[in-house]
Design a protein around this nucleic acid. Structure first.
Ligand SMILES: [Mn+2]
Ligand SMILES: [Mn+2]
Ligand SMILES: [Zn+2]
Ligand SMILES: [Zn+2]
Lengths: 167, 167
DNA sequence: TTATAATTGAGAACCATTATTATTTAGTTG
DNA sequence: CAACTAAATAATAATGGTTCTCAATTATAA
């Protein structure tokens, strides 16, 4: 199931205790509110590559009063300050991941079931730089998303299209 | 201004006369309607990397009755049958280009003014294949978009952020 | 020409995201 | 601790791109 040959350098979960989480919010120059702590907990301890909607649902479980806009607002701030990074695939809703526990990577997504592999490839990164330079551009960012059919879905001939486990 | 070191193999414009355009629609297995001819004319003779909205406006100039949904509908069919390809950048509106006059390419976009360079790089394509294979995936498609600052905008220190010429 | 299935235009619906605003609250200052 | 103020929140409306619905129209095959 978990075929992610990830290059992720995962910091252990206990790194993210109450105190550490509060410190993140302070470091961001924002007020420490229970809402922000709850949202951060869900991001740090929940699934990776989460959508705003999914995050909202996770957060709801802990605090049913926590509003919808608050999740989006805070997600935006986290993205701006590069605590999380936003992964956009086609016209689909954006997905978010904690950016500071992994090095830069791109994604390979199964079109059938949605499972995601992370990879990094310095050769491609270098080629991108070279291309930009050849046009006289200063490269500031890039999006590289690969789509395909994962080994699981190749086997089963893909009759489980609703599974969608964006791991 | 036009710095696009494009690899495009442009077929001359006169290739797209009335007859040829009608034939495209027939080849698609669709009925030949004046609306579809008008839309195709605008795609084939108009600017490249056009948005649905821009296309709609171009089409409006020729036929003010031609509806909005018709443009989207036909664009989708064209995309499905790979007559045009859809380029999505982040959360921005999709842009479309006639896919059958150029070979596959990716895009380098200026964040400031929006000008687009097209490039193809077989090395990157090969690496993508290799990555997918290494995870056991069958690669079906990919998105590679580079973003940066174009030479023009580097000069002028970028005080013309509204220019947006998605060439 | 007729029959019929495809196409159209208008507008409603949709969905992710952002903006607005009145109310509440965190953090500071005394 | 109490008072103050700027920041944050929840609810809700608005937005913008895109898709859907459906009654009316039209292209094509027989
Ligand atoms: Mn990732
Ligand atoms: Mn192009
Ligand atoms: Zn799969
Ligand atoms: Zn530029």
């Amino acid at each position: 199931m978990e075929l992610a040959k990830t290059p992720e350098i995962k910091e252990p979960v206990y790194r993210w205790d109450e105190k550490a989480i509060k410190q993140i919010v302070r470091d961001m120059g924002l007020k420490v509110t229970q809402q922000r702590l709850t949202i951060l907990e869900c991001i740090l301890r929940g699934r990776d590559h989460i959508t705003a909607q999914e995050l909202y649902e996770a957060v709801q479980a802990k605090d049913p009063n926590l509003g919808f806009a608050t999740v989006y607002r805070f997600l935006k701030q986290l993205t701006e300050q590069e605590y999380v990074s936003e992964v956009r695939m086609g016209g689909l809703p954006a997905r978010y991941e904690w950016a500071r526990k992994k090095s830069h990577h791109d994604h390979l997504t199964c079109k059938q079931c949605g499972s995601i592999c992370e990879f990094e490839n310095q050769q491609i990164e270098d080629l991108q730089e070279a291309i930009a330079k050849s046009f006289g551009y200063i490269l500031t960012s890039h999006v590289l998303e690969l789509y395909g059919i994962c080994p699981e879905c190749q086997k089963e001939d893909g009759i489980l299209p609703g599974t969608k486990n964006f791991s």
